[in-house]
Design a protein around this nucleic acid. Structure first.
Length: 532
RNA sequence: GGCCCCAUGGUCUAGCGGUCAGGACGUCGGCCUCUCACGCCGAAAGCUCGGGUUCAAUUCCCGGUGGGGUCACCA
């Protein structure tokens, strides 16, 4: 086999996603196995959703895992630039090419117009698809309107009949009827290419030989094949891996699970352990062994050892692996890990600043700062002395859920700095009509498990976004399971969980932080993910 | 709903026509032990269903069912 060239193409729209690591791992291993190149390309053609800092965070996460790339935006390479926002002229050239050969056409339909079209189609129980209203529009007229600066998109002219077939390296032949594929937008009205176009053009120009990506892309693959055809190019080989799932088998989403690589890093998962665990979610090295190193995986890698059903991401197993590996460390190594990861000087200083004026003896630092560490908290003690009056349980659940969504979406909150969080939180109060003292108190309890703690926003920032999210999710579960008669978050007449026998305790202590919460979940809102 | 993908214990998987269906996590029981943890031993728990093909199907084919993905000027 001549050296393959593979890539991951993350979109810088949020925290580094475990899916990116999963797909990245398989790409990386395949490249290394065959002495090929592993490339990182940033797909940032969506100007609205790309966020500052996300790109760096993705690089840092991949490097932490040890998935080093051979070409990428930060290290360059012979086929750059590797950031799609810097490749504008290349895309326009290629669009012009398709326009000139009649493989694509300009479409002047407005978003509203298309929305109305879809509504009608839905109402009539027909599949929603672009109806081709500008497909045969007069070329000269279209060019004139375009020259006049009228906003429009460019669409691929998909053949009306026949079918598009491709070989999936993991699934065999996959066929789609062309009449069911609508004319995909390839250039948006802002002049940026869509994913489909940029992806195909870049993969071709960068010499990508194997496209290894998530199953969610299968249905857009025929569009890509058609694009390769339109350009007269030979498509690469495709391998669609199964999607990582939540415990309920839906596509892994942060609504139900911690999905940030940073979260696992912060909780003290060892990078090689994390890779090993991800690898087992689809790859098997042998009949009766599931612990192996990255090098062993590379050595033994073969597509016939890759399974394709979407695996549930089971944090308990990850932790079991991690525990094993921690025990495998020498005492010196263990201490080194603690010093570099849990109590690194900068981290210690950050926490010390918050604890400084609140303790009387130095060694109170450790118990005082306990909530800065670990995953879920035990809310039993604090439940005995905390309540919100005049608010129903449903209101509490709602407001926490909204808050959790807010820290994801809000530009102020997303960076998770004390200032940003405070700005966001105060606005949030105004919008929800909650008194600051009520909601800040509630958040304090949720985030720290205590009614007294350092300043809420400094504390939240130091606790970290992923832990905060995890605790809110866990709190939602706990609150929803409180006895019915409890007003909101309140001290029930008797303790909520009056007696815990040995077994219960054991169970609780062992429950991993990642355990997905149940009973307090919101309607699914799928995470958007990049091609990784 | 249309289209597409998938299907071995609760979860991740091995299996590639004939196996007591193997391993791992989790669960349960026991041993070790001042406690816990680790470690060790053991147990319960699985081939989605129905048709074919075959001397023989978990394994091959078809269909049902179930799950998932996708139907944007997001990737």
């Amino acid at each position: 086999m001549k050296p393959p060239r593979v890539r991951i193409a993350p979109s810088p729209t949020g925290d580094p996603h475990v899916g990116t690591a999963y797909i990245g791992l398989f790409n990386y291993v395949f490249a290394r196995k065959h002495g090929g190149a592993f490339i990182v390309r940033i797909e940032d053609t969506d100007r609205a959703r790309s966020t500052e800092g996300s790109e760096e965070a993705i690089f840092a996460a991949l490097r932490w895992l040890g998935l080093e790339w051979d070409e990428g935006p930060d290290i360059g390479g012979p086929f750059g630039p590797y950031r799609q926002s810097e490749r504008g002229p290349i895309y326009s050239e290629h669009v012009d090419l398709l326009l000139a050969t009649g493989k694509a056409y300009r479409c002047f339909a407005t978003k509203e117009e298309l929305e109305a079209m879809r509504e009608t189609q839905k109402a009539e129980q027909r599949p929603t698809a672009y109806d081709g209203r500008y497909r045969d529009y007069d070329r000269a007229q279209a060019e004139a309107r375009a020259r006049a600066g009228e906003p429009h998109v460019v669409r691929l002219k998909v053949p009306r009949d026949g079918e598009t077939v491709f070989q999936d390296g993991l699934r065999g032949e996959v066929r789609f009827e062309n009449r069911l594929i609508d004319d995909a937008v390839i250039m948006k009205s802002d002049g940026f290419p869509t994913y489909h176009l940029a992806n195909v053009v870049d993969d071709h120009l960068m010499g990508i030989t194997h496209v290894i990506r998530g199953e969610e892309w299968i249905t857009s693959t025929p569009k890509h094949i058609l694009l390769y055809d339109a350009f007269g190019w030979t498509p690469p080989e495709f391998y669609h891996l199964g999607l990582l799932r939540n415990a309920d088998r839906s596509k892994l989403s942060k609504r139900r699970n911690p999905v940030s690589i940073d979260h696992y890093r912060e909780l003290g998962i060892l990078p090689q352990t994390f890779l090993n665990f991800l690898a087992t979610l689809g790859f098997s090295i042998a009949d009766d062994r599931d612990r192996f190193t990255l090098d062993e995986m590379i050595e033994k890698f073969d597509w016939s050892r890759v399974s394709v059903g979407g695996p549930v991401f089971d944090g308990r197993k990850l932790e079991a692996f991690n525990g094993d590996d921690i025990r495998g460390l020498s005492l010196d190594e263990f201490v080194e890990q603690l010093q570099s990861r849990v109590l690194a000087p900068a981290r210690l200083r950050e926490l010390a600043a918050l604890v400084h004026e609140r303790i009387n003896r130095l060694d109170d630092f450790v118990p005082y700062a306990s909530f800065f560490f670990g995953g879920a908290l035990d809310y039993t003690p604090v439940l005995a002395k905390f309540s919100i009056k005049k608010r129903t349980r449903a209101e509490v659940l709602d407001v926490l859920t909204e808050f959790m969504q807010g820290i994801e979406r809000d530009p102020d909150a997303r960076g998770f700095t004390a200032e940003g969080l405070e700005r966001f939180s105060r606005t949030f109060c105004e919008q929800t009509g909650w008194k600051t003292r009520d909601i800040f108190g509630l958040l304090r309890v949720v985030v720290t498990g205590r009614t007294a703690a350092p300043g809420l926003f400094e504390t939240m920032a130091a606790v970290g976004k992923d832990r905060v999210r995890l605790r809110i999710r866990d709190a939602l579960r706990v609150i929803s399971e409180l006895p019915e008669e409890a007003p909101a978050v309140a001290a029930p007449p008797q303790p909520a969980k009056p007696k815990k026998d040995k077994k219960d305790k054991k169970k609780k202590d062992r429950r991993p932080p990642e355990a997905p919460s149940r009973g307090a979940e919101q309607p699914v809102s799928q995470d958007k993910s990049s091609e990784t």
